[in-house]
Structure formats: structure tokens, C-alpha cells
């Protein structure tokens, strides 16, 4: 490994370690709340209401919503981690430590996105463990499940990064999760199959990228999906490439971090 690459590797390792250490240090804010919230979803939607709904897609309602709830937790936490960490670094000005140092912009982006992805996956694992108290899980397509959850976490970590670049206050890092991400998640087939919707709303739902993630992930776990899995992978990869290019453009331009 060349000297330059060795330096880059150490810098990336440092940044990712710092990000992971951050969300572990504040685990009551980062890891505990999703475990509690998702437990409530399982109890209320899965057990209490789900028992009256009956089967969906050939599975019990509890089995049907587990993949969606795991994916919802992954998406929200990957996004929130990068948005809050990067914005805090801006707010406390310690982002300057990175800007002054010989760390290329793509490594800064990679470090934050890896940190967000790590939190998303960590929370996903916690929620999966919680779900085992309510139902048994049998994964049908392991690699589809794993690759979809990682790609989704990466995609939303990138979204959180861009949000944090533009944010000028803590309020501005909660606007998109509250008004865009949460509605899209709830309407993204977490709790229902879009086949239950009228034709028009099925077509509208297809514009929601979260629908593809939830369904592809559900396909990996249960083997059922409302959409073709290849379409889901294609859309997510295009989104990741687009968001990465845009985030790098903003970083190179210095938007939100340099005067």
C-alpha cells in the first residue's frame, strides 16, 4: 500500500471509529429509542390489531410487517445519524478539524456515510432481535436481504449528509425526517401491500423509493414482494450514485462549511 493510501486508510478508519464511538456513547438517544418504539409497533400493530387483520401476502400480519419495521428503523437511524453528527460538527465548528487536515472530500463523505450505515445496521439488528420475541424469522434470500439493508442504509445516510450540509439550525435537520421521510415510510408498504390500494394510488405509490426498499427487503426475508426486486436494486443504485455525486459536488464547492 502506498504511503498516500496508507494515510487515507488511517484517516477513514479514524473517522468511522469516531462516528461509531459517538452513537455508542449516546446509546440512550440512538439505540434505545428505536428498540422501544419498534417494540410498541410489534405489540400494537402486530399483536393487538394484527390478530384481527388476519393474513397478508400469505403470512400472518406480524410476519408481514416485521421486514418493513426493520427497514423503517434502519432508514430513519442511518439518516438521523449523519444528519445530526455532521450538523453538530458544523454547529460546534469541529468540522474544521477535518477541513484543515489532508483528508479528501470523498473520504469525509465515506466516513460519515459509513458511520450512519453502521448505526442503521446496528439498530436494524436490535429491532430484528426484538422481533424474535413476537414471531419466528426465516430468511428466504440471505444476500438480497443483506445487500438491500446495506444499500438502503447507505442511501439514507447520504440523504442525511446532504440535509446536514444545507441545515442552518437543528430544526432544519428534523424537517425532512418529519415531513418527508416519515410519511414516505408509512406510505411505503411497511404496514400493507399496495395491492390493497386502488389502481391510481398503486401507481402513485410506485413513485415512493421506500416502497422498493421495503418490498425488496421483504422479498429477501419472506419471498413476497409487490414490485420486481431487480427494479428495486436498480432504483437504489441510481439514487446512491446521484446522491453521492451531489454530496461531493456540495463538499467540493464548500456549501455550508466554507465561507
Amino acid at each position: 500500500m502506498s504511503n498516500k493510501h496508507a494515510h487515507h486508510w488511517v484517516a477513514l478508519h479514524t473517522l468511522v471509529t469516531r462516528e461509531i464511538r459517538r452513537f455508542i456513547r449516546i446509546w440512550p438517544q440512538t439505540l434505545l429509542p428505536p428498540a422501544i418504539t419498534m417494540t410498541l409497533y410489534f405489540i400494537i400493530f402486530g399483536n393487538l390489531i394484527g390478530s384481527r387483520i388476519g393474513n397478508m401476502g400469505g403470512f400472518s400480519y406480524m410476519e408481514y410487517i416485521v421486514p418493513g419495521i426493520i427497514m423503517m428503523a434502519v432508514i430513519n437511524n442511518a439518516y438521523a445519524n449523519v444528519a445530526s453528527s455532521f450538523y453538530s460538527a458544523k454547529f460546534q465548528s469541529h468540522i474544521e478539524e477535518l477541513i484543515v487536515a489532508p483528508v479528501p472530500n470523498y473520504l469525509i463523505l465515506a466516513g460519515y456515510v459509513a458511520g450512519g450505515t453502521a448505526r442503521g445496521l446496528c439498530v436494524g439488528l436490535i429491532v430484528t432481535i426484538v422481533s424474535l420475541f413476537f414471531t419466528s424469522l426465516a430468511i428466504q434470500h440471505l444476500w438480497i436481504t443483506i445487500s438491500m439493508v446495506i444499500l438502503s442504509a447507505v442511501m439514507f445516510a447520504l440523504g442525511g449528509f446532504i440535509n446536514a450540509i444545507y441545515a442552518n439550525s437543528f430544526d432544519e435537520i428534523s424537517i425532512i425526517p418529519t415531513f418527508i421521510l416519515t410519511p414516505l415510510t408509512y406510505l411505503g408498504g411497511v404496514f400493507y401491500s399496495i395491492s390493497l390500494l386502488p389502481e391510481f394510488w398503486q401507481q402513485v405509490s410506485l413513485l415512493n423509493p421506500i416502497l422498493y426498499m421495503v418490498n425488496a427487503f421483504r422479498f429477501g426475508m419472506l419471498g413476497v414482494s409487490d414490485i420486481p426486486v431487480t427494479a428495486a436494486f436498480s432504483i437504489i443504485l441510481v439514487c446512491i450514485i446521484g446522491l453521492t455525486a451531489f454530496a461531493l459536488y456540495l463538499l467540493n464547492k464548500g456549501t455550508g462549511i466554507r465561507h
Partner: peptide, 18 residues
């Protein structure tokens, strides 16, 4: 970062320099 420990801040900064 005021929440980080003093030595961590130094080691982290050194890490950014490889």
C-alpha cells in the same frame, strides 16, 4: 468536540493526518 475526551481529540486529529 466538547463531548470528546482530551486525549481522544489529539489521537483523532493525528488520525486525520494519517
Amino acid at each position: 468536540n466538547g463531548f470528546e475526551k482530551v486525549k481522544h481529540i489529539l489521537v483523532t486529529q493525528a488520525g486525520y493526518y494519517g
